[in-house]
Design a protein around this nucleic acid. Structure first.
Length: 271
DNA sequence: CTATAGACCTGACGGC
DNA sequence: TGCCGTCAGGTCTATA
């Protein structure tokens, strides 16, 4: 499930395959993947462009093109960028195929068809994204002031990309467990100590997951075909019924705003 | 404005 | 075996 650490890994690992390469051809096999451009605009916008960089903003992968425009890729739930020799058959659930002049093809594999690609002219697409949680500007004070603006439960607040960019369901649960905060606590109702703990926990779980190259708990695959192993370090996510590492109590799964939410009822006492 | 539900999609898995 | 319900979770849109 791609969240910040998975998107960061894909960005870093796709870069060497495409950097400085000219795009020779683009084929869109599932038109729904392209949003914000027509398929023709998308294909023509990519053709003959040289990829000058690949970066990440929130959960977006940003392809920088020599003409000055950018192509955004959002993996959503099951998207994956896969690099292969051009003569190797495409992977199953291939939705978009980008042929490079260096003899490689980049496939956008996406079983559930939630993923999206689009070309943008400027940075406007990022106007509504909150700060990057791993940038130095994102201090505990910044987190506290952002969360103080919201009365809703802390868990869905952490998932709001306009507040903080990149946190998803799994890492929200992991960070709240590490900070010993129940997901239903009001976002504006933590103590100063808890805001600091949560800030530290967010950065810790994200950095640790990046070091492990992301969590391969369902469809997530890296561009070279390898898996990530961040999920082996999960303390609560997808571990319903297992015993809490810290206190031994059985872990719970509840539903918060329609999202599966994992927690330790003893370490994270209910409000 | 906020909160919530539904839509988008498909596959894996567990229970009977 | 085979069928059905649940779970997976990012984000846009519609509704209250």
């Amino acid at each position: 499930m791609p969240e910040l650490p998975e998107v960061e890994t894909v960005t870093n690992e796709i870069r060497p395959y495409v950097l400085g390469c000219r795009i020779k051809d683009v084929e869109v096999l599932w038109p729904g993947t392209v949003k914000g451009n027509t398929v023709t605009e998308f294909v023509n916008g990519l053709k003959d462009q040289i990829v000058t960089n690949v970066s990440r903003r929130g959960k977006f992968i940003v392809w920088h093109l020599s003409g000055g425009r950018r192509m955004l890729t959002h993996l959503k739930m099951t998207g994956a960028l896969i690099a292969q020799e051009a003569n190797v058959p495409p992977p199953p659930y291939n939705r978009v195929e980008i042929t490079l002049e260096n003899g490689l093809k980049i496939f956008f594999r996406d079983p559930r068809k939630f993923g999206r690609m689009r070309i943008i002219d400027h940075d406007k697409a990022f106007d509504e994204l909150g700060p990057e949680p791993l940038e130095p500007e994102f201090t505990a004070e910044v987190l506290e002031s952002l969360l103080k603006k919201r009365k809703s439960p802390i868990k869905p607040t952490l998932l709001d990309q306009t507040l903080i960019a990149g946190i998803g369901n799994m890492y929200a649960d992991e960070a709240l467990f590490e900070a010993k905060i129940h997901p239903l606590r009001a976002a504006d109702g933590l103590t100063s100590t808890e805001y600091r703990k949560l800030h530290k926990a967010i950065q810790h779980v994200l950095l640790a997951a990046i070091e492990s190259k992301g969590a391969s708990i369902s469809n997530y695959v890296r561009p070279g075909g390898e898996l990530g192993h961040a999920h082996f370090a999960f303390k609560v996510a997808h571990r319903r019924g297992e015993n809490c590492e810290r206190c031994g109590a059985p872990l719970e799964r509840i539903v918060v705003r329609g999202r599966g939410t994992y927690l330790c009822p003893k370490c994270q006492p209910h409000p």
